[in-house]
Amino acid sequence: MNLLLQSRTLIPGAILTVIFAGAAIVSMFWVPYDTTVLDIANKIKSPSFAHPFGTDQFGRDILSMIMVGARTSIAVALVAVGIGMVAGVPLGLAAAARKGGLLDEFIMRMNDLVFAFPSLLIAVMITAVFGASALNAIIAIGIFNIPVFARLTRGAALSLWSRDYIMAARVAGKGSARISLEHILPNVSNLLIVQGTIQFSLGILAEAGLSYVGLGAQPPLASWGRMLADSQTMISFAPHLALFPGLAILLTVLGLNLLGDGLRDIFDPKLRRART
């Protein structure tokens, strides 16, 4: 507990994250109003008791849209980070295990290749070629997560490979694959969690960006980015249409970044020492 309180950012970050994750989970079972049913007669209503966040241009309840949108964002970002980790971490471990070898060169140069493109550009490219959908957005965001995790893992693993206990494991006859899995991976995992949180927030931003330009989740699936895009011509007379999805994106990304910072404070021993 003392450890948790050492970080000033962890608690607020965790609270914000839990709120939005909670909204997303609740939306799977219950939302105040069905977001796939339109009610044109009740369009663009200001916030009221029946609709706390008001209704949008099709008469849908904005609170319900935000909840379903949270699910979309979180699902896309979560799976995308998953893809990045599942593909990137083994690549990084393998590269570190064969440092300076042909495999290391190959993996890292491929990473550089992906890194060389601006990440959103890759996403736009992929969705333009394969069609716009939430699934393609996931793949697109996932792909540019791979080199992030591969580099991070390789860098951290390299410093571990020179440790004595790794040498001991090697002398004991363990192969590099086994050492990577049993000794390296557990010791880089906290770094991965921190980076995963940051990538998660970037994934949410990327999904919102793609949806904003129409390349992310397609209607009727609610998405924060598309809510923003749809409401921008109405901002002068119905600002709440853009305000709530905008706040949702802002607070979620802020929350995840605070959480990530907080986790780093706890996991990174060097920083901890520096503070005390």
Binding site: T36, V37, L38, I40, Q57, F58, P219, P220
Partner: peptide
């Protein structure tokens, strides 16, 4: 916009 409305009506 019409497309989203029609999609909902057809659904």
């Amino acid at each position: 916009r019409g497309g989203e409305i029609i999609a909902a009506q057809l659904r």
